[in-house]
Design a protein around this nucleic acid. Sequence first.
DNA 1: GGCGTACCTGCGAACTCCTCGCAGCCCGTC
DNA 2: GACGGGCTGCGAGGAGTTCGCAGGTACGCC
Lengths: 148, 148
Amino acid sequence: MIEDWEARLREHGFRITPQRQLVLEAVETLRHGTPEEILVEVQHTASGVNLSTIYRTLEVLEDVGLVTHAHIGHGPPTYHAVDDHVHIHLVCDRCKKVLSIPASVANDFVHTLQSEYGFQTDISHVSVHGRCDGCKALDPILEADDPL
Amino acid sequence: MIEDWEARLREHGFRITPQRQLVLEAVETLRHGTPEEILVEVQHTASGVNLSTIYRTLEVLEDVGLVTHAHIGHGPPTYHAVDDHVHIHLVCDRCKKVLSIPASVANDFVHTLQSEYGFQTDISHVSVHGRCDGCKALDPILEADDPL
DNA sequence: GGCGTACCTGCGAACTCCTCGCAGCCCGTC
DNA sequence: GACGGGCTGCGAGGAGTTCGCAGGTACGCC
């Protein structure tokens, strides 16, 4: 559990509630979790918790910098705890598998965006689509084709 | 208009219909278009066209490699014609502005993903989140914080 | 040019993901 | 321990997308 999560919330004028604790714990346990998955995880401990609360709680936790979200393809967003290693998602559009790689791989790319376009990149929010090693052999991407 | 679009469709066993032609034209005119925007564009010419048809047509056009889509943040996907320059979207999470930059900027990054992780990147499908030059000054991203 | 069939379209229902309004609860403070 | 305002659960509702079905139409075949 991230230390000082209570302090983080209080600093921003938010209250400490069991729901917020449970959601944060669930995000850390799952490492990659959609709101729906987080709900299920939370309900192992407290079955009365509502999906709206998950959404509102995730918004609060993101606000104070305890969790982040990233968009992985078409479905719902995925949430992470921020003390987890900052990473990039490689999403295989064919088998839907998600690889996490260290964000450092993109350092040069990020610097170029900064120096040439003045763009400050939130690298943890990036997801890169394509074909994983296995699927590449079976069904490679052709030029600019994107048969998702 | 992409040459041979009719041939492309026929090759894959699809028929040529006015709707398919109009959708393809709309995508090329708009350059960046959500299904809803494409519908509006198509309806300038043929008001009877239905949104379901737009979705089904885009799926077909993507299938035969005439259009691609990319996910730009929380909203609906954006479609492009494939003869357009391959590009990367830089999405400002604060002002929602989208910059298009040449895909070549990511060449080294793409090669690293290939050589180190065996991952074949569909670079046109990537969207990079962060802060544009203007917003960066007003409200920068703090470490791993992501206050979208 | 006309015919038939399989594909395609329009329409509406439904589904998923998410947000909102409201009434009651409970955290934090005095 | 009592009070007030933020927080939660619940249900309704909205945006974006998909699906099933009935009728229309492209296109191969004569």
